[in-house]
Design a protein around this nucleic acid. Structure first.
Lengths: 254, 254
DNA sequence: TAGTGGTCTAGACCACTCC
DNA sequence: GAGTGGTCTAGACCACTAA
């Protein structure tokens, strides 16, 4: 593989005829090559990748360059590396990973994983908001899920989830696990890589109050979240309303 | 410098008599050696560090090992590296850095940096909450600051800041800049490295409503933040109340 | 014992900045 | 042109894991 200044061949997987020049550093090219394979589920979550030296010889770069790409993917939570064992595609269903995208914490001490109860689930035409958040065309359809979530057996959050039907066919008929994102990964090959949340203070509406079994009119936090996959496509919109009597929203700034 | 399995001498700055064995990898030892110098303001914010090769020969390790430590410090936002220029101790007063610890954003578009107006400032005995958050003894004193902050000229947040008087002597008599953390760094040699925020929904109290020039009783978000320095000591407690009529709290989950 | 990732080194060349 | 960080390589040794 030639140097990037005038080189090409983009870290393997490229046809030799295009002559396209890739100016990214080699290890970034390798990063994206491996990212593509993860997105294409070449390696299922939990599965072991080839060793550094195997990848290096396959891609025609040095082991150190492969390592740099693997380290970057690990930093992005897409791989897990363990000395003496190997490198694995990340699984997102253990306790640590649940709390990665669930920022509510008990005020007291460590809480168990949040529990979920599905209130409603259906397929429907995408609303204007859903089309906006998920970048959908006017005729698109979505799967819409309403869930009640509890922490330490106390209901604290009611959420409405919308995902494009084209990406998640048959989802509405499935048994939903507590951790929806592991279902996305295992059954639909879609890995959530990043989510952006916008929080606002609101007055708890009647319907949400009933479901949460508290008085209406209480202050609550509304969380508007869009989740993106490995290729930064918006794949899920989630609008949550939560009360903070015995829980809080945790945010760590670095 | 010997290997870490049976080696010692902890990346320079260690006396030769102690014979203490440091089991951390070399680059972590170098990381902490440099971190210590930053904490001790050996390099002021904005100042250039010696080159990689100079640091390497001074510490008796290879350039690659120094690089790994420098890269880690850069990832932690403590250094800034620029090709062809050099490595610099991070400055935390540019626009990007302001928003690093200020998560309110305008609902519409990019906002200018938030504005601040000091409402009150005084020295006082630490309250029980302040002693708790800042790990202070019973007799400790604090500087307490109340500020009103605006985004796009709209008041959106009122905050009460408490810092230990011992760490910030004379702060109460100073002119406070918009970005308090740059003052901490430049005048007191204290760099804020991380902050943890807990958010709750509350009803806007009378006093805060008056200061924000809105009706009392509106829903608001209360932010309880503890900020830590490079050595992970709690150095500032900040209790904020913000209204979210035209702004939201942004949280990015990875 | 074989294979994996983790650490460390040494040296080459490149791109960028500043004089 | 000199000096800086950025990339890439090649090879050594270590610690850990599993058979």
């Amino acid at each position: 593989m030639e140097r990037s200044g005038s080189g090409s061949s983009a870290g393997a997987g490229r046809e030799g005829q295009g002559e396209a020049v890739d100016f990214r550093p080699l290890y970034r090219q390798v990063y994206h090559t491996l990212l593509r394979r993860l997105a294409d589920a070449v390696w299922q979550p939990g599965q072991m990748l080839p060793s550094e030296s195997q990848l290096a010889s396959e891609l025609g770069v040095s082991q150190g360059t492969v390592r740099k790409a693997l380290d970057a993917l690990t930093a992005d939570s897409l791989l897990v590396r363990r000395q003496g064992r190997g490198t694995f595609a990340a699984e997102h269903d253990d306790k640590q990973s649940v709390f990665r995208f669930f920022k509510l914490r008990s005020d007291c001490e460590d809480s168990a994983a949040p529990q979920s109860r599905v209130v409603a689930i259906a397929e429907a035409s995408a609303s204007a908001d859903e089309r906006d958040r998920l970048a959908l065309v006017r005729t698109a359809r979505v799967v819409r899920i309403e869930r009640l979530r509890s922490l330490d057996d106390k209901p604290c959050l009611i959420e409405t989830i919308a995902v494009p039907l084209t990406l998640f066919p048959g989802l509405a008929a499935m048994d939903l696990p507590n951790t929806l994102y592991s279902l996305y990964a295992n059954r639909f090959g879609i890995t959530i890589a990043i989510a952006k949340e916008r929080l606002k203070a609101v007055v708890l509406p009647r319907r949400e109050a009933d479901l949460l079994e508290v008085a209406e009119g209480k202050p609550a936090i509304e969380i508007d979240r869009v989740a993106f996959d490995l290729e930064e496509r918006p794949v899920e919109w989630r609008l949550s309303t939560c009360i903070t009597d015995s829980v809080h929203y945790l945010s760590v700034l670095r």
